[in-house]
Design a protein around this nucleic acid. Structure first.
Lengths: 233, 233
DNA sequence: AAATTGCAAACTGTTGACAGTTTTCCATTA
DNA sequence: TAATGGAAAACTGTCAACAGTTTGCAATTT
């Protein structure tokens, strides 16, 4: 690359269609426009006070991220991942997060280890008090930190894209309630492996963590799907 | 997804900006527009007989694929990955291809095993005759087949995106010459592991294959970079 | 009453034009 | 001759309008 990443990000944000891309993405991920629904170019253009050109450009960019689907002459629709796709995403996330753990274990600094331990402590405190509102953002930041600190920007970009897509999966919310302590014991093993600078162990700990999250999601999903009609199963 | 993938692909290709996206991508990956160079929207519009609108949409889509870079008020530039990024990509490819091998080993059919063995045989024949022109497309098809047959479309999409990005790495050509037999013994182990329906072994064989390809590329790169000025190293 | 056909409104796809910025080139000056 | 400054050309960013398609509605028919 000729241009540094951060400078580029700033510049991209300044461009109109760049801003639109982020705003529309926010509207989609925030659930303002529900999955499956058609997006109206005109409404968006009016809402943001621009013409339809930049809106269309932004939507084409979001298509590349897999958040919307373009159907010729009918418009763009918010994507609605089926369970099968959610499983696919979790499988890919599993190996990506495993790689992040491995790479981080190879290069982690003392300061970063301290930071990880701090996250862990705060999460454990929140879990003990069953304070989910505090736990959730901490959990998010903890994972983000690992993805960023591993030093592989390509991995980070891909991982973030997958997480965004998962936000469109309707059953995602199912898993949020359960397993605060379970999840945290996995976090502890991850941090220990990183602190020990053991890449292989870290890779296992990290990929296992996501694999178990997948299992928890699927269990919750099947539980929510099956009971209404037991005869069909 | 509400709409089947293949139908959507056909429809997308019919839309003008969809066609443009593919054509421009072809021009970029074919080396017609060299990395680092600016793309002229007007020239492209004239060349394809359209206005600039669809061209801009296509370019925004290509930005999402990581093939071009948008710089406000200056235009889009063909990306030029540095060695560091190539390494990042190889590391991600390593785990993705490993996952493909694992998934394939879990679900492979007899017909698919036969097809893999066929590829292997043809590649070995080509390698014995040092017929690189025959070996290269076979090698490509072999890898494509594995990626497709593993049954994870998300993985396939991500993997293909990474391979496209690698095409923009100038030193990519360095590695093409060497290691036909070496590479093929790795292929044999991959196929054997899949045929044995051993997911773990297949995962190792597949990720090792890419990891070794990375090592070969880096070795060739350092060899090509270092000698001209030994004092600077 | 249900289904069907035709019309009108809404929306997408594309275009050409205009405003603002960047780049290039040439004339001027040290 | 090299450097500098400025004007013109080129190009990007954005917009408004038009053509073609889809969708929704109402009248008509069975």
């Amino acid at each position: 690359m000729t241009i540094p990443d951060d400078a580029l990000t700033i510049l991209r944000t300044r461009s109109l269609s760049g801003v639109l891309e982020r705003e529309i993405e926010k509207a989609i991920l925030g659930g303002e426009i529900p999955p499956g629904k058609r997006v109206n170019e005109n409404h968006l253009a009016i809402r943001f006070g621009t013409s339809r050109g930049p809106v269309r450009e932004a939507l084409r960019a979001l298509e590349g991220l897999g958040l919307v689907e373009l159907v010729p002459n009918r418009g763009v629709f918010i994507r609605q991942p089926a369970v099968e796709e959610a499983i696919e995403i979790y499988d890919v996330r599993t190996v990506l997060f495993g790689l992040a753990g491995k790479l981080l274990a190879e290069r982690v600094s003392e300061a970063e280890v301290a930071r990880l331990r701090d996250y862990l402590e705060q999460m454990e405190a929140a879990a003990r008090h069953r304070d989910f509102d505090r736990y959730y953002p901490l959990n998010l930041a903890f994972h983000e930190f690992i993805i960023d600190a591993c030093g592989n920007g390509t991995l980070a970009a891909q991982y973030r894209g997958l997480v965004k897509k998962l936000h469109l999966f309707r059953a995602r919310s199912l898993v949020q309630g359960g397993g605060l302590e379970v999840s945290n014991s996995e976090h502890r093993e991850m941090v220990e492996a990183i602190a020990a600078r053991d890449p292989e162990r870290a890779q296992c700990a990290h990929s296992d963590h996501v694999a178990r999250a997948k299992a928890r999601l699927l269990a919750a999903y099947r539980k929510a799907e099956a009971p209404p009609s037991r005869l069909t199963s």
